[in-house]
């Protein structure tokens, strides 16, 4: 999926990651985020990507990449192998978002997750007024050809984290480019953020 404000998103993600961290980008696309993080934060990066042409692109850029599926192949990694895992605009396309989330916080100390927020006011009003599945910049596919299996709103995501024993540490506001401490579930959060971008970790028992 193409990222509209790619560089802006990248910057916010880079701000969340300390220098020299080990990072896996799940659904790493052509590897440009990993390249960006290498340059900005000198990370030790790995990618996973389901689309072989993009895997080839990563290889040609010198990025270590596994051709794999987030739903199936995260199980192959041991606990806490990475400092950070990243899943941008992919959660809604997985078969089992809950398992994928749980795996991400298992294989890394912290996970950065972003997804298109189906609860954004523009989407919500579009659905309400047109009675058709919304198409926007962030949700650019028609309903019958979308790879997205599980749309969710920011509030849905917050609920899922709670259910899966995952703590939300920070949330980014992509409008203001700011990282906020997470204040919790509220109507405005889900209403005004086009994208949900969260820093999460596993709640230790």
């Amino acid at each position: 999926m193409s990222l509209i404000n790619e560089k802006k998103d990248f910057k916010i993600i880079a701000d969340l990651i300390p220098a020299k961290s080990s990072v896996i980008d799940v659904g790493c696309n052509d590897g440009s985020l990993l390249e960006f993080l290498k340059e900005e934060k000198d990370i030790n990066g790995r990618g996973m990507e389901i689309d072989q042409q993009k895997v080839q692109l990563c290889l040609s850029k010198g990025i270590s990449v596994i051709e794999g599926d987030a739903d199936l192949d995260l199980y192959d990694y041991p606990d806490n192998l990475f400092d950070y895992s990243i899943l941008t605009y992919t959660l809604q396309a997985t078969k089992s978002p809950k398992n994928v989330l749980s795996e991400l916080v298992r294989i890394s100390s912290k996970a950065i997750i972003s997804f298109p927020n189906f609860g954004h006011w523009r989407i919500a009003t579009s659905l309400l007024i047109n009675r058709k599945m919304p198409i926007s910049e962030k949700l650019s596919y028609s309903w019958h050809e979308t790879p997205n299996l599980h749309f969710c709103t920011i509030n849905d995501f917050i609920d899922l984290c709670e259910e899966a024993g995952i703590r939300i540490e920070k949330q980014a506001n992509l409008k203001t480019n700011r990282l906020n401490k997470f204040y919790g579930k509220n109507l405005l959060n889900s209403y005004f953020n086009e994208v949900g971008l969260f820093l999460v970790s596993k709640i230790k028992n």
């Binding site: 895997v55 290889l59 270590s64 990449v65 596994i66 192959d76 990694y77």
Partner: peptide
């Protein structure tokens, strides 16, 4: 093989050609 390398944190890539 890939899994072993991953477990050890080795810089490994994998591609399955159709």
């Amino acid at each position: 093989i890939v899994k072993v390398f991953n477990t050890l944190g080795i810089n490994v890539s994998f591609i399955e050609i159709e």
